[in-house]
Simulated assay, not measured.
Amino acid sequence: MVGLPGLLLTVLMFTIKEPPRKGATGTGASIPVRDVLKYFGSKARAYSSICIGVSMNAALGFGSVIFLPFFFVRYHQMAPADVGITFGLISLVTGPLGLLFGGWLADRLYKKGRKDAHILALMAAPLGFAIPSFTLPFIQDTTTAWVVLAFSNFFINSPSGVAYASLQIITPNQMRGQIISIYVMCTSIIGYGAGPFALGFFTDYIFGDEMKLNLSFLLLALITVPVGIGTFLWGRKAYAKAVEEEEARLKAIGG
């Protein structure tokens, strides 16, 4: 049922005219993977900061979502169905708003001349959900817990669109698909794979008690939030330099 609207909407793609490519040179033939990896390596710091930083965000966000029903059932005595409905309604509002906020912030900073605009917009996410993530596991009032989670969910969703835009801005036209695939692989393995695994591992093998799931939430946040912020800070100047170089290249070829 969730996927059906997406399948129906794909029909609309046939009504969209293919836009002309900008910044393309040569014959337009596909670029070998080794050349893409070489280019990735030449700007490794800029690319890695995005891949790793967003992966930390995904690890906390997706890891938490997987165990969220257990958390509210065990610590707030809610029925699983009520957890699903409540979180679904919250996500319906905070998810899209967070997504729009991330794009708005990146565009606003970029228009002001900040070449590191997209990194700063990405870094706003862990800065925004840091305190909620540290405090949520210990909030006893159920309503307050949901309000804090909504605030956290807003920021956790904010990097989703910005990350893809940030990669395309520093990548030549012909390499964007392959660079994006590297990013998706990284976030899938570290974020969507390691996040839930780490939370379960902490609960079973470090704390050894399923009733200490709240401590596992805290530990995951204490790892991913500082690493995410630190990674964005580490790659900020390299990303700004990569933006300037790509802008200069496009200007030189009239793209």
Rank of each mutant, 00 (worst) to 15 (best):
M1E: 11
M1L: 12
L4W: 09
M13V: 09
F14M: 14
R21S: 10
G23A: 08
G26T: 00
T27Q: 01
T27R: 02
S30I: 09
I31D: 08
P32K: 07
R34P: 03
D35W: 07
S42N: 08
K43T: 07
A44R: 10
A44E: 01
R45F: 01
Y47R: 11
G63W: 03
L68K: 02
F72G: 05
F72K: 12
V73A: 09
V73I: 15
T86Q: 10
F87H: 13
L92T: 15
V93Q: 05
T94E: 05
G95F: 10
L97M: 15
L97P: 15
L109V: 01
K112G: 15
G113P: 09
G113K: 08
R114S: 12
L120P: 07
M123P: 07
A124I: 01
A125H: 05
L127G: 14
G128M: 04
A130F: 05
I131S: 06
P132N: 10
P132V: 09
F134A: 15
F134G: 12
L136F: 07
I139F: 00
Q140L: 13
L149R: 05
L149D: 02
F151A: 14
P159L: 08
S160P: 02
G161K: 06
Y164V: 15
S166L: 06
I169V: 14
N173K: 14
M175T: 00
R176H: 03
I180M: 14
C186L: 11
I189M: 08
G193N: 08
G193Y: 07
G195R: 08
G195A: 03
G200V: 05
F201W: 15
F201A: 14
F201H: 04
F202C: 09
Y205V: 06
I206P: 06
F207P: 11
D209F: 03
N214G: 04
N214P: 01
N214C: 00
F217H: 01
I223Q: 05
V227W: 00
G235I: 00
K237R: 12
A240F: 01
A240E: 06
K241W: 04
A242H: 05
A242N: 08
E246K: 00
E246P: 06
E247F: 06
A248C: 10
R249F: 10
